[in-house]
Amino acid sequence: MAKVELCDVTKIIRKRTIIDHVSLSFPAGQVSGLRGVNGSGKTMLMRLVAGLILPTEGQVFIDGKQLHRELSFPPSIGALIENPAFLDGYSGRDNLKLLADIQGKIGEREIDEILQTVGLAGAGKKKYRRYSLGMKQRLGIAAAVMERPEIVLLDEPTNALDSEGVEMVRQLVKQEKERGAAVIIACHEWETLKLLSDVVHVIENGRITESIQREDFS
C-alpha cells in the first residue's frame, strides 16, 4: 500500500476544474516530482495531499485511511507549500521552536542541527523579518523536514536559492528518501526535477498527462 494514494480525485473551485480525475500513488522511500507550468495544478495537488483542501470527488488515502473521513490531516507531514510563512517578530530559531513545541517530537539540538543543514546556523537568532528571500526559503525547508515526517511536501523548493542552496535541497531530499519518507516535490523546472526525483508526473490543466520513471529521463 502506498503511503499516499489519490483515487480519481477531482477538485472544482468556482465552477473551474482545478484537478481533473487524478489517480496517483506516492510510496514511502521515493521522491515523486510534479512537473507543470504555473497554474497547472501542482500546488493544488499538494494541498489535497496535505488535507488543506477537500476533494470535490474522489478520495485521498494516507496509509489506507481516508482523509476528511478517518483523518483531518496526515498524521506525520511536513510541508512547504507556496511561500514560507513565519512570525516576523521572532527569530528563525524561535519560529522553528514554536512549531516544534506543538508536537514535542524534537528538541533544541535537532533545531540547531537543521539550521546548520539548511545553512542558517549563523542567522538563527536574526529576526525573520530581516531574512532575505533565500533565507526564508531555507527556513521553510527546515520547518518541513525538521521533525522527520513520513510525508514531505516541497513546493518549488529551489525558489530564490543559489547554487549552494540547490545542492543543499538535493542532499536533503536524498536524506529524506533514504529515511523512508514519501517526498513529493512540485517544480516547473525540468532540470531540478531530474536531479531530485525517482519519478516525475507531468500535470497539465489539472490532469496527469504522463509519468516518467528515472531511467527514462532525457
Binding site: 496535505a50 483531518s72 512549531l99
Partner: peptide, 15 residues
C-alpha cells in the same frame, strides 16, 4: 490561516 497557521494546523491535526 493562510500564513504560519497552515504549519500550526498540520501539527495540531485539528481543524
Amino acid at each position: 490561516l493562510t500564513g504560519v497557521g497552515k504549519n500550526i494546523l498540520l501539527r495540531t491535526q485539528s481543524r
